[in-house]
Design a binder for these strands. Structure first.
Length: 824
RNA sequence: GCGAGGGUGGUGGAACUGGCAGACACGCUAGACUUAGGAUCUAGUGCCUUUGGCAUGCGGGUUCAACUCCCGCCCCUCGCACCA
């Protein structure tokens, strides 16, 4: 049996590439650069599975393609190495997180290297390395100096399983993003980064990210959650205190029948201190606080609330209305208090019905008025103002502006913009993270660690314990105050690991620079990232944080650009039995097993061919052999032809026969198709299909030397192109095919093939003949046959004539080179 | 509820600005070569009542022509969700 010795071929090129180091790059102003980055992994220590392989292969195909297009390609790899799993493993197995992480990095490095992916390993970095986190700390100090890193006491998300606080972005449906356990609230003093200062720019600049998926941009837009409205004050009757509310529907202000405040709103404790309601409200607030995030956020649950006994005065109408404490009002958003308009807000409507509060209609549909008693739901659509004083009769959209202006003139309220985005809580009560470079001194207070004393090193000689590990290290905690020299204490919280990953793409430009966070020349050469590749799960978290960091550094004058990733590609996940392939689900297909059976090229090819890369891929091994057979067919074909097509450089004669012309056409069409597929959204699956079509055409031809066999120079042209086209997808085979054709240097140093439009053009086109829109016949015509001629030929067609039954056509439509439709 | 994406043969998936639906594969069927076939090669393969008819989630519409455009539904995936 003829063989395709894939193991020997892959082994051979594995060794050659290791020697030549294809991935190693330097800044070269003479060459156009291309920075291709796959999101760096957390070194989990599990074996690489098909999900990983898909991820890295997508990046690798792009890297190899861009190399062949003549770009100076940067493709680095590193490790998002801090994090909780290392601590959990330490508790379970008694291995120090540092050792655990280092071991995992070693294991994963070996596995990645076995896949022969192109990386510049000389730039490898790990966020847990003091030479890296020194600059993470330096960046924290930049935020601190700019007043954007601050500490405050606030109710925060607390995961009791992970024993740490979480950022808003890390709470998914009320549960911890990592361990999926419900998240509670705690009042704690914590460090924050003031990302809210950048809310508007983070929103506006989404428009610049034209090469990002729409989906991700929308998710960020929703997360930032900008809303325009009016903030105004209501005097609390009988006091000198005002209650401030925020509304996006100021047009409904004449329909306010009560106000709702968050149960924990400070005005309640203040004004009810000595009243009987005070105790009841406090009890209610306590009850609400105990509810988990999930319970409180559930829209299905009936809204709870109670009358506080306080009365507020609506500045628009002068009416006195009750103040309710209600669990559906959130202290964190707006002012923590709302004006309630039951007639025009469903939540207020539900609450009013449950508590017997009045409903006042102030906006009616165009054609009729509404009777509050007959309403079963709030009227939230646009309409016309009624019972709204001077604004009656206006369309409500117009009234919105008018009322806001009136309130501003009267000094009652003002127009404001609110964001849903919260400041980024970055403290973590964990050991295995980047220490926050702050010292607390009795005399000087909060003191940042001076830059020349960085890094604040994580002590490694500790016995691991479940919590409070850093606090227990006297050597770490007890330090002299950097300012006054008196005994002081270090901050023992570490930073959220998302801080580490918010700037790593910058460090790759100059990973060994010991004096600076990055070398400006190198960063300016490589950045921004031309193509970023990663999972959709980072659509908000990592991608929003990285954009924030870049904008901040831009404002500090450290970067000339203010968006880090020019193009983003989110690859689909690999599923098995309907679930994401992951170690914890136990449904993985191991990479090394697949590679052992079929080789790297087949494994890559199968993953790339099975589905478009952005789509989810349900793993079924059936079909792997299809790719294997294809690669074998290609290899055997080159074996049969390699002697006949050598040496290179034989001229292609001008007077070729039909077979040769067809082969050249197919070759040039394939070059065109694959190049287009790679350029538009990485359509690897159809690119491979195009390659298969070419191979099907080739293998259908007579053998070398046989009668009717293609001209060797023409075959040479095909095989030369095919070797290059195949190389990014099937790198080992690509190199081998190139060598079989006599190529001395690596195929990846060869230019990407170009098609010739004239050769790719068809000599005859099929024009479909339709009668009343149904295909009845076909014509083979030279391209650009005049419409009149096409019409004549169509009408002369015997099938058409038969269907005509003597009638004259009502209409004939000709689409040049495509179709003719005869309508009777 | 809001937002985004999706629904095409037995399966994964193709189809440019509306112009031959099902490329390319998998699987299946038959045949060849074989002691053998889970190897390889060849042919066939959307469905049906086959000079034709019906088919791209369902129902309408626009058009000479609709997977593609418009209107109304259904289902699936993801994100956000009492944000005032």
């Amino acid at each position: 049996m003829e063989e395709y010795p894939f193991q020997a071929i892959e082994e051979k090129w594995h060794l050659k590439w290791n020697e030549s180091g294809l991935g190693r790059v330097q800044e070269d102003p003479a060459k156009p650069k291309y920075y291709c980055l796959v999101m760096f992994p957390y070194p989990s220590g599990s074996n690489l599975h098909m999900g990983h392989v898909r991820n890295y292969t997508i990046g690798d195909v792009i890297v190899r393609y861009k190399l062949m297009q003549g770009f100076n390609v940067l493709s680095p790899m590193g490790w998002d190495a801090f994090g909780l799993p290392a601590e959990n493993a330490a508790i379970k197995n008694g291995i120090h997180p540092h050792e655990y992480t280092r071991n995992n990095i070693a294991v994963m490095t070996r596995q990645l290297k076995a896949l022969d992916l192109i990386y510049d390993w000389s730039r490898e970095l790990a966020t847990c390395d003091p030479e890296y986190y020194r600059w993470t700390q330096w960046l924290f100090l930049q935020f601190y100096q700019a007043g954007l890193a601050y500490k405050k006491k606030n109710p925060v998300n607390w995961c009791d399983t992970c024993k740490t606080v979480l950022a808003n972005e890390q709470v998914i449906e009320g549960a911890c993003w990592r361990c999926k356990q419900p998240v509670g609230k705690r009042d704690l003093e914590q460090w924050y980064l003031k990302i809210t200062d950048y809310a508007q720019r983070l929103l506006d600049d989404l428009a610049k990210l034209k090469k990002w998926p729409e989906r991700v941009r929308t998710m960020q837009e929703n997360w930032i959650g900008r809303s325009e409205g009016v903030e105004f004050k209501l005097r609390i009757d009988g006091t000198q205190r005002d209650l401030e509310v925020f509304t996006t529907r100021i047009d409904t202000v004449f329909g306010v029948t009560y106000v709702s405040v968050a149960p924990e709103h400070p005005i309640l404790t203040e004004l009810l201190a000595c009243k009987p309601e005070g105790t009841l409200v406090a009890e209610f607030a306590e009850k609400v606080k105990l509810e988990s995030e999930i319970e409180r956020a559930s829209t299905a649950k009936p809204k709870q609330g109670m009358d506080t006994g306080l009365r507020a005065i609506n500045p628009a109408t002068g009416e006195k209305i009750p103040v309710y404490a209600a669990d559906y009002v959130l202290m964190e958003y707006g002012t923590g208090a709302i004006m309630a308009v039951p007639a025009h807000d469903q939540r207020d409507f539900d609450f009013a019905r449950a508590h017997g509060l009045p409903v006042k209609v102030v906006i009616r549909p165009e054609d009729r008025d509404l009777d509050p008693a007959g309403m079963t739901e709030a009227f939230v659509a646009d309409g016309v103002q009624v019972r709204s004083g001077a604004f009656d009769g206006l369309p409500n959209r117009a009234a919105m502006t008018k009322i806001a202006e009136w309130m501003e003139q009267q000094g009652i309220g003002r127009r404001v913009v609110n964001f849903r985005l919260r400041d980024w809580l970055i403290s973590r009560q964990r050991y295995w993270g980047c220490p926050i470079p702050i010292v607390y001194c009795q005399k000087c207070g909060q003191v940042p660690v001076p830059e020349d004393q960085l890094p604040v090193t994580l002590p490694l000689d500790l016995t691991y314990q479940a919590s409070g590990m850093l606090e227990s290290s006297e050597a770490f905690v007890k330090v002299p105050c950097p300012r006054c020299g008196q005994p002081a204490r270090r901050e023992t919280d570490t930073m959220d690991t998302f801080i580490d990953s918010s700037w790593y793409y910058l460090r790759y430009a100059s990973p060994r620079d010991a004096n600076r966070v990055f070398d400006p020349t190198a960063v300016n050469y490589w950045m921004p990232v031309d193509q970023y590749i990663g999972g959709i799960e980072h659509a908000i978290l990592h991608l929003l944080y990285s954009r924030f960091f870049t904008k901040f550094l831009h404002d500090r004058g450290l970067l000339p650009f203010d968006e880090p990733f020019a193009a983003l590609f989110t690859q689909g996940m690999v599923l098995k039995d309907g679930q994401v392939m992951s170690k914890s689900k136990g449904n993985t297909v191991a990479a090394d097993e697949m590679v052992g059976r079929f080789g790297i090229d087949t494994t890559r090819g199968f993953i790339l061919f099975a589905a478009p890369p952005e789509r989810e891929l349900e793993w079924v091994d059936q079909g792997v052999e299809g790719i294997f057979r294809f690669l074998r067919r290609v290899y055997l074909f080159y074996q049969r032809w390699q002697e006949a097509v050598r040496p290179a450089g034989a001229a292609i004669p001008a007077d070729l026969g039909e077979t040769d012309r067809q082969l050249r056409r197919k070759t040039h069409q394939t070059i065109r198709r694959i190049t287009e597929d790679l350029d538009q959204d990485f359509k690897f699956n159809t690119a491979i299909a195009a390659m298969m079509e070419l191979v099907n055409a080739l293998t259908g031809l007579p053998e070398p030397g046989a009668a009717g066999a293609p001209h060797p120079a023409v075959m040479r042209e095909s095989l030369d192109a095919l070797a290059r086209l195949a190389a990014p997808f099937f790198p080992h085979l690509g190199e081998e095919l190139w060598a079989m054709l006599g190529g001395a240097e690596s195929v990846f140093k060869q230019p990407w093939p170009r098609h010739d439009q004239a050769i790719a053009a068809e000599e005859l086109v099929t024009v479909v003949v339709q009668v009343n829109g149904k295909v009845r016949s076909r014509l083979e015509l030279p391209p650009r046959t005049p419409s009149a001629e096409v019409e004549r030929l169509a009408l002369a067609d015997e099938r058409v004539a038969a269907l005509a039954e003597g009638r004259k056509p009502k209409k004939v439509i000709v689409v040049p080179d495509k179709l003719v439709n005869v309508v009777f």
